[in-house]
Amino acid sequence: MPAYQRYFGWVAGVLQGDFGYSFSGRAASGVDRSRAVVDLIGPRLNNTLFLASMTALIAVPLSLFLGITTALYRNSVYDRVVNAVTLTTIATPEFFVAYILILFLASLYQVFPSLANIDASMTMGEKIYKSALPSMTLTLVIVAHMMRMTRAAIINLLASPYIEMARLKGVTSTRVILYHALPNAWAPISTVIAFNLAYLVVGVVVVEVVFVYPGVGQLMVDAVRTRDIPVVQACALFFAGTYIMLNLIADIIGIITNPRLLHPR
């Protein structure tokens, strides 16, 4: 069949939840032990979403807090220390952060396990304990990005004339932040959050491989290594779809909080 027909066949299959069969397990003897891609991805999808949402629950409030406080006390010692630390985390590869955490928290002092081999039969607490290190690694990387962007957005806002007017009126600084700056900051902050959650979805790939976490990322890397195209296609569809959805949500939130964007100039 020509390529375009196969492509539309694939798209039609995907719309009905049929991602085809994995290449692995197809023996030359004629016995076909290959598994459906849906069966491979299904359980791992839950694991990946579990890790991502656990990280997001910690990372988003933490980075908003750090971003707002560093913007308020900018150029203080606190601001400089947080800035230096986040700059270093941004510039280092994820696996470096991961292995340093393993060295200190799993190897030298055995606080957390270094293998995050969770499965469906475990209780919630057990799962959280096992995936503590991967989620910590992701948190460190994400918080650095998100906090810097939040800080930049808030500082940008604090420089606008209406904030200065509020200050001159004698409004307390907490009130300035919460009632004057924050409503206008929601749009940039939500963009930052969505952007970083999208980044999180991608960062998951490397971290899953480091901690042997049974997620979609690891499946995808294994499939790339063995050139198992149907699996790669389905994983890529999942990652790209999530990424695009999150970016779309960010745009929508931006429009809701700032209706001026509805009317192009």
Binding site: Y199, V202, M220, V232, Q233, A236, F239, A240, Y243, N247
Partner: peptide
């Protein structure tokens, strides 16, 4: 529109 690491893997 597609994250570059995922695109590169593909």
């Amino acid at each position: 529109a597609i994250p570059s690491l995922i695109f590169a893997l593909m």
